[in-house]
């Protein structure tokens, strides 16, 4: 394989310096790290999609004529906005999770219906979704009726007005806040460690426990996160710049 030089180099490096990069040369540790990374990406992506859906649904429900519908959405936002995400995670996993029915697996053991990963997805999606509700709502409210009128006077029907004018404008207004939320979400996925979801932090923890190379793995993990989040922030900011309304704002 063409990567073998890197593995050899890591082994040599260990012999000479004592710095043990098992996650480079050891295929077992390497796989674990890769799996952790994939799980972090996977978790972030699923939560991103679900939180956007929750945001759209919530923003729609907030426009409801029923007082109680609006109150429930408001209560939902308030809960997730004002409590630590760790508490939310524990709340879902331990409190709600204990109320869920169990089923018998093929070894005759009782197993919960939803696994840790699913609970992390649910908890983090609701967490990020709460912010999206507020963001989407303000985004739609930001488009003045006079702009809608202008579109109508040009013959746009309701659907076309939304598709070509209101939503593109609202999206641009929302984008910076949405990006903050996304970056925050990716950072918050590390909390899934607390309920033993095999994401990157959890896998790294296993590697340094088994291979006793805490400083090496730890440092690598820190830099890996900083690099990944930095990349995301950079990409999002470039996107924002491209989507900026020319002539407005900075």
């Amino acid at each position: 394989m063409e990567w073998s030089w890197a593995f050899d180099w890591a082994r040599e490096f260990y012999r000479e310096t004592g710095i043990n990069l098992t996650f480079v040369y050891d295929s077992f540790d390497r796989d674990r790290l890769a799996r952790g990374f994939m799980n972090t990406v996977y978790l972030s992506l699923i939560c991103l999609v679900l939180s956007v859906l929750i945001g759209i649904a919530g923003a729609w429900l907030q426009g409801s004529k029923l007082v109680w519908t609006r109150r429930i959405v408001q209560g939902y936002i308030q809960f997730f906005r004002n409590t630590p995400p760790l508490v939310q995670l524990y709340f879902f996993f331990f409190a709600v999770g204990s109320l869920m029915p169990t089923y018998e697996n093929r070894f005759g053991m009782q197993e919960p219906m939803l696994d840790n990963f699913t609970w992390a997805v649910i908890s983090l999606s609701f967490f990020a979704g709460a912010f999206n509700v507020e963001i989407f709502r303000s985004g739609i409210e930001a488009v003045p009726t006079s702009t809608v009128e202008a579109a109508e006077s040009l013959g746009y029907n309701r659907l076309q007005t939304y598709r070509y004018i209101v939503l593109p404008l609202a999206f641009r207004v929302c984008l910076p806040a949405l990006n903050n939320n996304l970056v925050n979400l990716v950072k918050t996925t590390t909390l899934a460690y607390a309920i033993a979801v095999p994401e990157m932090l959890y896998m790294a923890n296993q590697i340094w426990s088994d291979s006793v190379n805490v400083p090496e793995t730890m440092t690598f993990l820190l830099f890996a996160y900083v690099f990944l989040v930095g990349l995301l922030v950079w990409a999002m900011h470039s996107w924002e710049r491209a989507m900026r309304l020319p002539g407005y704002g900075r």
């Binding site: 303000s138 930001a142 488009v143 003045p144 207004v173 910076p176 806040a177 309304l245 407005y248 704002g249």
Partner: peptide, 18 residues
């Protein structure tokens, strides 16, 4: 910027918040 009021205060609010 210009004197065109394209977006309502909600946009302003969202930008400050971001």
């Amino acid at each position: 910027g210009t004197d065109l009021p394209v977006l309502l205060p909600a946009a302003d609010h969202l930008q400050r918040r971001a």
